[in-house]
Computed example of a mutant assay.
Amino acid sequence: MKKVFATVALLGLCFQFLSAQGVYIGPRIGATFANAKVDGENEPNFDNRTSVLFGGALELGLGDNFAIQPEVSYISRGFDGGDDGIFGAAPTLKLNYLDLGGLVKLKTGSSEQLSAYVGIGPSYSYLLNGEIGDVEINFDDGDTFKRGDWTANFAAGVQLPLGESYLFVDIRYLLGLTDVNENDDIEVRNRSYAISAGLMLPL
């Protein structure tokens, strides 16, 4: 029983600390401009693929200048067209992911006025479905795409206070670290730019 009371007390202290520092939650929506780095016998160039991203974020304040921002998002990657039919007659690739990640943010300026921040952090993306041209990817086929993709995220943005809430807009570079292609002869790593905005509400 003492352990239960101690655990409850510790959780209460943690909640009070986070509340004092600032805890926010809210939706995030934006657009991605996706491409891929391909290494193989030849290295084709592809056009960016533009699509929508959406999800939610939770910001945990750590003092006046630092914060941790866990996120969950639906995000699409891949590429449009290119100079080589490396993936068949229709080289357009569409990969739709559920993305779990977060940023460590360094913020400048006051929380009562327009301020800026930079951030860096990892994410793990789980491939939900995809298409090559107009054909859905069959994940039962061993020579296809891997479900998991680790990504390094680099962000820069601004925050505009609205009373106790705030709006944010940021741009990001998403550097895929995983060879997502199961074919050993061709390495494919996701590369994307993203711009997003959201409204963060205090808890």
Rank of each mutant, 00 (worst) to 15 (best):
M1G: 15
F5G: 11
F5C: 13
F5Y: 15
V8P: 02
A9I: 10
G12Y: 02
L13A: 15
F15P: 05
Y24D: 01
G26Q: 07
G26L: 01
R28S: 10
G30H: 05
G30V: 03
N35Y: 00
N35V: 07
A36L: 13
V38E: 03
E41Y: 13
N42F: 11
E43Q: 15
D47Y: 10
D47G: 14
N48S: 15
V52A: 13
V52R: 06
L53D: 01
G55H: 02
G56E: 09
G56Y: 02
A57V: 08
L62A: 13
L62W: 01
G63Y: 01
N65S: 12
I68F: 14
P70K: 03
E71D: 10
S73F: 12
S73K: 12
Y74A: 09
I75D: 11
G78F: 03
D83R: 04
D84Y: 12
D84H: 12
A90M: 10
P91Q: 07
T92H: 08
L93G: 00
N96I: 00
N96G: 03
Y97C: 01
D99T: 05
L100R: 00
G101T: 02
G102A: 02
V104R: 04
V104E: 05
V104Q: 05
K105Y: 04
G109A: 01
A116C: 09
P122W: 00
P122E: 06
S123P: 00
Y124C: 12
Y126A: 13
L128I: 12
I132T: 13
G133K: 04
V135S: 15
V135F: 13
E136R: 11
E136N: 13
I137V: 12
N138V: 03
F139D: 06
F139S: 04
F139N: 10
F139Q: 11
D140L: 07
D140F: 06
D141T: 08
D141W: 04
G142H: 10
T144D: 14
K146L: 06
T151H: 04
T151D: 07
A152Q: 11
N153I: 07
N153W: 00
N153S: 10
N153E: 13
A155I: 05
A156Q: 10
A156K: 11
G157N: 02
G157P: 01
V158A: 11
L160W: 15
L160V: 13
G163S: 01
S165Q: 10
Y166C: 01
Y166V: 05
F168K: 09
V169R: 04
V169L: 14
D170V: 07
D170R: 14
I171R: 05
L174G: 00
L174S: 03
L175P: 03
G176F: 01
E182I: 08
D185S: 12
I186N: 02
N190G: 06
R191S: 14
R191L: 08
S192E: 08
Y193T: 06
Y193N: 05
A194F: 01
A194E: 09
S196W: 00
A197R: 08
A197I: 10
G198A: 06
G198K: 02
G198Y: 00
L199H: 00
L199A: 03
M200D: 02
L201Y: 09
P202I: 05
